[in-house]
């Protein structure tokens, strides 16, 4: 089983500590939600996990230092969905998802077949012939998820995947990510909205709270103490509202 482990990881940039002594482990088959206010260091953590940033401490993928791994070997284990997907040039959706299979040594025909399968899995096959710069936000995000699926990795890193999407698209996207998790992948997903995790639909989802570059708490999504943790993390009062079978954590507007 593939795993990603960050042990006592710190990242500094221009004299500022972005991550301080962070330890976190994600195993294949686990869903870990990373929660925290802006500037908490969540994106920095994902970038350090990918080997994009120099960090002190250990960032290990299956026990190997991630920055020392050959690119293709790392990309066989870890796929990433950044906050914003660049579409600087007008490639077709199929071409873009095919390019995501760079890690495979295969013919173009095989790469296209893999990309089409990934587009199908993401429910985005109907966009295959369209240009990436002509897609709506929701469509583009679905195509970006297809790119991750095309990489065929056991671990997925997602950076606020539902950012800038309307509520229906957010729900659809979280359900898609939940499906990828249930198929056996490990997921580390940054989110601002803990309530979206109800669409993952499992109380066992692990929630990790971060602020000021440090891990502040770690508990199960279904744990009763989650509301207090979230309240402390965002420094805002939280009310628990029961909506049918769902428990919602709603900011009350009062101080924590």
């Amino acid at each position: 089983m593939t795993n990603l482990e960050l042990a006592n990881v710190s990242v500094r940039a221009r004299g500022k500590a972005l991550l301080q002594d962070v330890s976190l482990r994600v195993n294949q088959g686990e869903f870990v939600a990373l929660l925290g206010p802006n500037g908490a260091g969540k994106t920095t953590l994902l970038r350090a996990a990918l080997g994009l940033l120099p960090a002190t401490g250990d960032v290990l993928l299956d026990g190997q230092p991630v920055r020392e791994m050959p690119g293709r070997e790392r990309a066989a284990k870890l796929a990433w969905l950044p906050q914003q997907s660049a579409a600087a040039e007008p490639l077709s959706v199929l071409e873009q998802v095919t390019a995501a299979r760079y890690r495979f040594h295969e013919t173009h025909h095989a790469a296209e077949a893999g990309a089409l399968a990934a587009l199908n899995a993401a429910g985005a096959a109907q966009f295959a012939e369209r240009y990436v710069n002509e897609l709506s936000g929701g469509e583009a995000q679905r195509v970006a998820v297809a790119g991750m699926i095309a990489q065929e990795t056991p671990l997925l890193l997602l950076d606020e995947p539902a950012n800038h999407l309307d509520p229906a698209q957010q729900i659809e996207l979280y359900r898609l990510v939940a499906r990828l998790w249930r198929e056996g992948r490990g997921v580390l997903c940054i989110t601002h909205d803990v309530n979206m995790l109800r669409f993952v639909g499992d109380a066992a989802v692990r929630v990790v709270g971060m602020a000021e570059g440090r891990v502040r708490f770690e508990c199960a999504y279904g744990a009763p103490e989650l509301a207090d943790h979230v309240s402390g993390l965002f420094n805002v009062g939280i009310e628990i509202v029961q909506a049918g079978a769902d428990r919602l954590l709603v900011p009350s507007g009062r101080p924590a």
Partner: peptide, 20 residues
């Protein structure tokens, strides 16, 4: 060609997809 095509998605994205 393949590496350059992957690079069109952005430098960091290409890194995550295996391009050095």
């Amino acid at each position: 060609t393949r590496a350059l095509q992957t690079l069109l998605g952005g430098e960091e994205r290409a890194h995550s997809q295996g391009v050095n």
